[in-house]
Design a protein around this nucleic acid. Structure first.
Lengths: 83, 83, 83, 83
DNA sequence: AACGCATAAGTAAGAC
DNA sequence: GTCTTACTTATGCGTT
């Protein structure tokens, strides 16, 4: 550890740099989140059902395999439970 | 494993009982969570700041030592960053 | 507001009672959560796939209507997108 | 609404474009979130307390006034409860 | 402007 | 012991 330590034994410069890198990235992330929100607002203004859109996005995120897997498990269960 | 297995190799009765016990408990848990929400709503209606109340509840959940330790390291870092 | 106010203008007794009611309920909630964990542990010991069980519980929580609704939305989307 | 509607009455092209824009942005967002995670991992490897770091980041996100205000009301409540 | 909701952050437990 | 995954809590946002 070559870094200079402050009077409390903390490598202050190193810590400050890490924090700043994080904050920079969080800003970018917030900016993108804001863009996404704008798109939903735009979609709503054009008459789309944003709740349904959000569901679509989340369903697609899961991927088809996972959805199939879920269906298979449920199937097995329903049979086992006689539903 | 003495339990009867169904055609898929699942001990159906046993599984059903476990699932039902879990679901019963989850219902109770949800009910209590709802009660807690009600109390916060009541508190808010009487003019209390529920955000502060939540913080107090979480602070009291941790022991005093743990609380002090966390505060100390936070203090240290804030000094290092000149906050 | 008939409650006695402390020197900072806080109805201390009322606040204390609300906090205590919350803490009591949170204890109960934690106890039930612990019971649920125990059941999963027991299930695992008996050879069940707890991950699958959790999925089953969550799928059942959603209810059949919601699952159907999700399927319907997805269907609509896939058609619209030519998938 | 000039867009062509499919047989279900959905402006399919428009919907598809909106969804794709959202998904693209969500990917970027996830990528940045992953970068942030990496920095925390790096910080941890260098001996920093990441929990404290996260708290600092969140404290700095709020303005100083807001921070003081929250601290003040919390203080008040703690006194009222004799903590 | 307050309410409930939905996403996001933080925390804790379980698996490898 | 680390690392991921699931749960809980908190914050912010859209709605009424």
């Amino acid at each position: 550890m070559n870094d200079a330590l402050d009077k409390n034994g903390i490598a202050a410069d190193e810590l400050a740099q890490l924090i700043e890198r994080i904050e920079r990235l969080e800003e970018e992330k917030a900016s993108i989140a804001s863009d996404i929100k704008d798109i939903y607002a735009e979609a709503k203004a054009r008459g789309f059902d944003t709740k349904a859109m959000r569901k679509i996005v989340s369903l697609r995120k899961k991927g088809p395999e996972e959805r199939q897997e879920e269906a298979a498990i449920l199937e097995l269960y329903m049979e086992a439970l006689g539903m």
